[in-house]
Design a protein around this nucleic acid. Structure first.
Lengths: 129, 129
DNA sequence: CTACAACTTGGAGTTAACTCTAAGTCAAGA
DNA sequence: TCTTGACTTAGAGTTAACTCCAAGTTGTAG
């Protein structure tokens, strides 16, 4: 699979893919004799994983550390599990914050919906307006 | 309320608070005669709102636009509602992504838990390892 | 009144994560 | 073989959101 095909599959740029490889967010990708990247299914799976993790804000640094440990072999199971657990905690915290913000936004939007009918915007509790 | 007190209340730095004011993420804060910031309850409510929105990744630019419209008065109800709705959509998308990543992480971690007992790490489906 | 810590400003510096540029290499069609 | 477009690298540039700095001002404790 060429870099272009992988880019189209995941809607990212070649620059980002090469960057991910360079900083170790994914392992080194298989190449043709000429030195052109030729992604195997495994390479693509690593890309998919990286994008999924990045979508949830997992840092490039953490992903690279995971890949580094992965390449060290089976003796790093515990360390890898620890990283994943750390990522999960961060994501859960983020999820909670997002939920709080969603609640606040829903409340505010409902107030604006009333305001657009009555012409008056009013908050029940401690809001800024 | 002094800038220090507000910082302690929300666990942020004075630099961040001044930055928020400078770029319009919050309206101009009340001052003492000497020019020192003296946050009113309303100022503090704006800060709280800004932090909540930033926690969910709402951009500084979007928050500043909301404040700008707010200061233009009641004729901007619709525009303000639109911004909030846009923010809500972005947050919902992000929430969905986070959930997908959480599911993947939970799956991987459970595999590592098995591996730590059996010494063998195996994926049922299309994973990278 | 005098220290002196905490505040002020404008502007420069930092960080993470890309994103772009230049100069060169590879490969498929005429 | 030649052309042309996609690929390669190293390294520089960009962006958002802070974060720090220098130089000066305010206000409180002694």
């Amino acid at each position: 699979m060429t870099i272009k095909e992988v880019c189209e599959k995941f809607d990212i740029t070649p620059d980002t893919l090469r960057y991910y490889e360079r900083v170790g967010v994914i392992p080194e990708v298989h190449r043709t004799k000429g030195g052109i990247r030729d992604y195997t299914d495994e390479d693509v799976a690593w890309v998919e994983n990286a994008i999924c993790m990045r979508n949830a804000g997992v840092s490039v640094e953490m992903l690279a550390e995971y890949v580094r440990l992965f390449q060290l072999g089976d003796s790093t199971f515990q360390a890898r599990r620890d990283i994943l657990a750390e990522a999960r905690e961060e994501i859960q915290k983020q999820l909670d914050k997002y939920q709080v913000t969603m609640d606040r936004l829903n409340y505010k939007i409902s107030k604006y919906d009333v305001a657009l009918k009555t012409g008056v915007l009013s908050w029940d509790d401690c809001e800024e307006e």
